[in-house]
């Protein structure tokens, strides 16, 4: 398989100036990305995760050519992104989480028409792509609605479609499901899966929602402190991190911390208790046993957050030294 994205020892350093006293300023060099090397093959869908400030967006900005790396080698589709940013722009699609590129006061269709002309997309290709997106993302009734009237979920779907009209070889998605309701999330995920399998578009996805990764990506890369700390399947990540899910149980009355095989009570608060159990284990037998032995009112399962997973992997390194952005 040929590698579409290649990074070899890529670094990015920022000079941070801080006020120290009234007039004096301190200069400090911070490494946002510190010797990053990986490859992504054509047609892969990869999750790219890490805590805030770990270097995720810096990486994406270098891959799109916005930022010039301080060192190392970087190529996307055989091109050095920062040198040929404008040329590469025709071959990539980017969705920046909450920053819409659509025209607020105009019907959605007009935004797409502008994309067609800016990217100089041939009419027949444009029509075919738009039709496909409209069908899969359920946009037919939204095309003539001003963007400001769309809900957050509708707008995100519309934004993703806008990024795909010019048939990009790579699609970068930054938090594509943030703030969306369950139905919208499912729609977005289903669409991304289809784009990836049917068009063989390579997708790099950053997210805070582990479910996105679970449902979409066979491969996950974890970045922390600007370094790649994990690269492999999601199961491996859980095992490596020995992460835990939490069962939140509401009993009928206040009880002493329950004692049950395969789980441990980590917190009690009145009649509510938090039980941690291995992420890889199934919750069903646990729930069955609980229901048999205790008077249950309600229960819910909390998935491990990425922060938790990574914190567990690395025993909670100092949070304070992280860069914003």
């Amino acid at each position: 398989m040929d590698a579409l994205i290649q990074l070899d020892g890529v670094r990015k350093e920022f000079e941070v100036r801080r006020r120290a006293g009234l007039l004096r300023r301190e200069r400090r060099t911070v490494r946002a990305v510190d010797g990053l090397s990986f490859e992504v093959a054509r047609g892969e869908m990869v999750g790219y995760i890490g805590p805030n400030g770990a270097g995720k967006s810096t990486t994406i900005k270098m891959l799109t050519g916005i930022l010039v790396p301080s060192g190392g080698r970087l190529s996307v589709a055989g091109v050095d992104p920062s040198r040929e940013r404008t040329r590469l722009a025709r071959r990539i699609g980017v969705v920046f989480g909450q920053r819409t590129t659509l025209w607020w006061d105009l019907p959605l269709r007009d935004s797409y028409e502008l994309v067609r002309r800016i990217y100089r997309i041939a009419r027949d290709r444009y029509t075919a792509n738009l039709e496909a997106c409209v069908e899969l993302l359920d946009l037919a009734e939204l095309l003539d609605v001003p963007v400001r009237q769309l809900s957050l979920g509708q707008r995100m779907r519309a934004d993703i479609a806008a990024a795909l009209l010019h048939d990009p070889e790579v699609l970068y998605l930054d938090e594509p499901t943030i703030g969306l309701d369950v139905v919208s999330k499912a729609k977005v995920r289903e669409f991304l899966r289809q784009v990836n399998t049917e068009r063989a578009t390579t997708v790099l996805l950053t997210t805070h929602d582990l479910t996105d990764i679970e449902q979409l990506c066979r491969r996950v890369m974890v970045i922390d402190h600007g370094r790649l700390v994990y690269d492999g399947g999601l199961d491996g990540l859980h095992a490596v991190g020995e992460s835990e899910r939490t069962l939140v149980v509401d009993f009928e009355r206040e009880l002493p911390p329950v004692n049950i095989d395969g789980a441990r009570a980590v917190r009690t608060e009145g009649p509510r208790q938090w039980l941690a159990f291995p992420a890889a284990a199934s919750a069903a037998p646990l729930v069955a046993e609980l229901a048999a032995r205790y008077p249950l009112v309600d229960l819910s399962i909390r998935e491990p957050a990425i922060e938790d997973v990574i914190a567990r992997m690395y025993g909670g390194r100092d949070e304070a030294s992280r860069l914003p952005g």
Partner: peptide, 8 residues
Amino acid sequence: DTLLVRPV
């Protein structure tokens, strides 16, 4: 950044 990823 959104201006920098367009081909114009």
